[in-house]
């Protein structure tokens, strides 16, 4: 890979805020036309890194090139080529949707006519045409996010920075946002997005960088990362505990290669359930008809994705259970079911 293929290239970025070393020597690289997921817990330095790359913040040391332009020497030229959507929707609440986008267009030196036309097509694309003439303060959280993202796309940036674009959105809205990101990449942009959700990085990113304490602790493809972390776990709790042996047998049938089902006996877990490591969602599809066929009623059936917690555990050897979300997805449940909350 030559350096020309790298649309983001950062070396040794350091930034200190008072006593906090937010960035402690961050190296990043992103290939043109791809999505790079920057994964890490709150306070890992993700937002600081994005603000440095988007020229909002000067690093104490280190170098960064975005779209081939030196971020420190020529920030103005970088700003012409990037779009940024921050963690907090930065739309003007008093302005209408169309006024927000036209303003950005004017600031990007579009003519009045082009700015209005561009605003119109973005509003349509983001499904905001009906709300276009309403002040943004009347928008729902999801609409605000979409308007904010639209605002960062007015100038057709080569590189798009998305700082936790789906935090606070419900699952359906999150998937809409994923669709938007994919479309951007299809139309030639490169996207760097930060997230706390492994699931999100997995769904979107070609490569994932894991950041912790201002350092990059892993840079790999999602599959590579998962191999390191271990796969997903499928857990079943039958209504009738005497059916557990049958459940174990059925789970063994969908087990990942080289693994087998076991009873949940770990300290802290409620007895009466069985788990098995699986390789993907397909395991659920095979299991549910099998459970029905054997007339096994279940009170819990859940697919646990490798959580960020587990990523950190396997990468750093320490647990950070306190502040990390758990990647858990409830299955399609027959009978009474306990669906664990999806984060």
């Amino acid at each position: 890979m030559t350096t020309e293929d790298l649309v983001v290239r950062a070396e040794g970025l350091r930034k200190r805020f008072g006593k906090t070393q937010a960035l402690d020597g961050v190296d990043l690289s992103m290939r043109r036309g791809t999505v790079l997921g920057v994964l890490g817990p709150n306070g890992a330095g993700k937002t600081t890194a994005v603000r440095v790359l988007a020229t909002l913040l000067r690093p104490d040391s280190g170098s960064a090139f975005v779209a081939g332009v030196d971020v420190l020497r020529n920030p103005r030229e970088v700003r012409r080529r990037v779009g940024l959507t921050g963690q907090y929707a930065s739309v003007d609440e008093d302005l209408t949707g169309v006024q927000n986008l036209v303003l950005i267009g004017r600031l990007l030196d579009l003519s009045g006519r082009d700015a209005r036309r561009r605003a119109g097509e973005l509003l349509e694309w983001f499904d905001l045409t009906e709300a276009a003439q309403r002040p943004a303060k009347t928008y729902s959280g999801g609409m605000r996010r979409r308007l904010d993202l639209a605002a960062s796309l007015v100038g057709r940036p080569e590189v798009i920075f998305l700082d936790e674009p789906t935090t606070g959105l419900d699952p359906a809205k999150r998937e809409d946002m994923w669709g938007v990101v994919r479309t951007q990449v299809t139309s030639g942009a490169s996207v760097l997005l930060t997230t706390q959700y492994l699931e999100e990085a997995d769904a979107l990113a070609d490569e994932i960088v894991v950041v912790d304490h201002g350092r990059v602790i892993a840079h790999d493809t999602p599959d590579g990362l998962k191999r390191r972390v271990g796969g997903q776990t499928l857990r079943v709790r039958p209504s009738d505990p005497s059916r557990l042996p049958d459940v174990l047998r059925l789970l063994d049938a969908v087990a990942a290669r080289g693994t087998s089902a076991s009873l949940d006996e770990a300290a802290g877990s409620r007895p009466g359930a069985a788990s098995v490591p699986v390789t993907g969602d397909e395991a659920l599809g095979g299991l549910i008809p099998a459970l029905r066929a054997d007339r096994i009623e279940v009170t819990e059936l859940a697919l646990h994705l490798p959580s960020l917690d587990e990523v950190f555990h396997s990468l750093t050897g320490r647990r950070k259970a306190d502040d990390l979300p758990d990647g858990t997805r409830a299955g399609d449940l027959p009978g009474p079911a306990k669906a664990e909350e999806m984060v």
Binding site: R80, L103, R106, L107, L108, D109, L110, S111, D114, R117, R118, E121, L122, E124, W125, F126, D127, G155, R156, D176, G179, V180, T183, S187
Partner: peptide, 27 residues
């Protein structure tokens, strides 16, 4: 969400004071 049509993004040159004036007026 429909597909995106392309409006030409024209950026007339002209920086410095005129750009500051133009952007300030928009703001």
């Amino acid at each position: 969400m429909s597909t995106m049509t392309l409006t030409p993004v024209t950026r007339p040159a002209g920086g410095g004071v005129t750009a500051l004036g133009r952007h300030s007026l928009a703001l």
